[in-house]
Write a protein that binds this DNA or RNA. Structure first.
Lengths: 250, 250
DNA sequence: TAGTGGTCTAGACCACTGA
DNA sequence: CAGTGGTCTAGACCACTAC
């Protein structure tokens, strides 16, 4: 039993994981049911607890089961669904602006969110926010890249002073100053026309199609603390993402 | 040494991982250098090899180090960079069309890629492909959602017969018939105007802004085998993504 | 061939869950 | 309280890498 006698090149924990995956797929346990305990699985497969735990770790990483100390291992799914991820490692990659861009603030104004604005933002009524309008340009050429509207909680307003002084996107400046980290970023992308009052600033004809990119930044408590909305005239900007498939278990 | 005598609630392997992370950040080892061997780390931290390995697993999952059997553990980075992921679990989520849509094929035609087309597609010159033009509609209402142009390798053309018969996006039909899995999907999103010849079909005025979504599907060998290009008239469709921060180690 | 990380065992105690 | 998964030890052999 010690050596790998059979011609199976897979490690034992992998064999156990594959067997369990197959049994899950076969419907041995329904979703929500409890898997046998680790000790029981040790007996079933005649392996040590360590090996069983390595196998369960694989199942857990695939999202098939959930383990909870004290209560046991529950079935989350019978088979690994198709999964894709977009993995963004670089902050610049997230915003997808070339490094050589500069944001010029046009206006900044504090306001209190009325009912309608609060609903739009997803914040409480009466909260103090700052609205900033700005233009993003390439440093070299003159054509503006986009017209940006930023909304940030008034309590973080001083981070605005760092725009143009320190590099990086606003959310990074806020993190630097206040320690608030974006835990979640919601991105909405839509098409629209360049609004009339922005057309001149963007140096395009009114009615030019534009890519609207709206990002909502949420902190660890799920509270929205920044919203950025950029209007990018049609030919100047393309949003690009690469999605990788997460390989299935077997 | 057995019990957790100090008031440190972290498990030992976590303490070891955090200490190593701090040392990495402090520059004890440069990028590319070898970490001490697991046995050495056991002695340094006075823990068992299992504990060291759990700690190294954490470092590896954070992308700080790389482990290779036989050669050792090398430093990949001194600190975990900001990382965000978009995690797409549902296939429908990937395409973001509501379930109740139907694709109606207007035209389908086989062609050979000339030099220009081959360069655009990213395929070899002279290869046989099929171009399909189609309209996606909600089943209930009448307003078309988008005008779609599909390009697929001619060898997978029979998957087109399943459109409207089997549910799911084309790439899933191809996978079902031929076993080809998308390993990578590249998504480009841009703004444009609805082309004149599509305006009538989409039931919008010519010149209406549209969201162009172009997806390139690559198989495991990095070969493009399908491209879909959808033109979505402005108010009818918004692309939405949610990015989660990957928590740092400490 | 020496040394690395990968796998595996047997056994122990702990922290947490739920009856 | 009994039983679960979480952590940890001591020790072993194996597969792989590099010299």
């Amino acid at each position: 039993m010690n050596k790998r006698e059979q011609a199976d090149p897979r490690p034992r924990y992998r064999q156990v994981a594959d067997e369990l995956t197959a049994q899950l797929r076969a419907g041995v346990w329904p979703v929500g049911a409890m898997l046998p305990t680790e000790t029981e699985l040790c007996a079933t497969f005649a392996v040590s607890r360590h090996t069983v735990r390595e196998a369960l770790r694989l199942l857990e990483e695939s999202g098939l089961v959930q383990r909870r100390q004290g209560s046991g291992t529950t079935v989350l799914a019978l088979a690994t669904p198709d999964r894709f991820v977009q993995d963004i490692t670089d902050m610049a990659e997230l915003l997808q602006y070339p490094q050589e861009t500069r944001l010029t603030v046009l206006r900044a104004r504090t306001f209190e969110a009325d009912a309608e604005t609060a609903a739009q933002i997803g914040c409480g009524e009466g909260e103090a926010w700052v609205r900033v309008e700005a233009i993003r340009r390439l440093r070299v050429t003159t054509a503006p890249l986009c017209f940006t509207t930023l909304l940030i909680r008034a309590e973080y307003a001083e981070a605005l002073d760092d725009i143009g002084v320190l590099p990086g996107p606003l959310y990074a400046l806020i993190e630097r100053r206040y320690g608030v980290q974006a835990a979640l970023i919601e991105v909405d992308i839509a098409a629209s026309n360049v609004p009339p009052h922005q057309a001149e600033l963007l140096e395009v004809e009114p009615g030019t199609p534009a890519l609207l990119i709206r990002r909502r930044y949420l902190d660890g408590q799920g509270r929205v603390y920044e919203i950025s909305e950029g209007a990018h005239p049609a030919p100047r900007f393309t949003y690009r993402a690469t999605l990788k498939r997460i390989p299935e278990l077997p």
